[in-house]
Amino acid sequence: MEGGFYTLQDFMTYTKGITYLIMIVSLFSITGFWLFLTDRDTDTQSPEHHKTEHH
């Protein structure tokens, strides 16, 4: 059974590895998403707005 997992340990190493990648991607993309979400807000008071533009 090439490609399967025989131990919980191997399974977890694999899935947690993927999860770590997702975490890295999500941490950085949330900034971009926030920008996308608030881009057309007429109210430009929030410093968030300015900050994300420069990130």
């Binding site: 968030e48 900050k51 994300t52 990130h55």
Partner: peptide
């Protein structure tokens, strides 16, 4: 001034 603008983002990262 650039770093100060990043404050909010850094704070959220820091808390996480």
């Amino acid at each position: 001034n650039l770093v100060v603008r990043l404050t909010m983002l850094l704070t959220i990262f820091g808390v996480v």
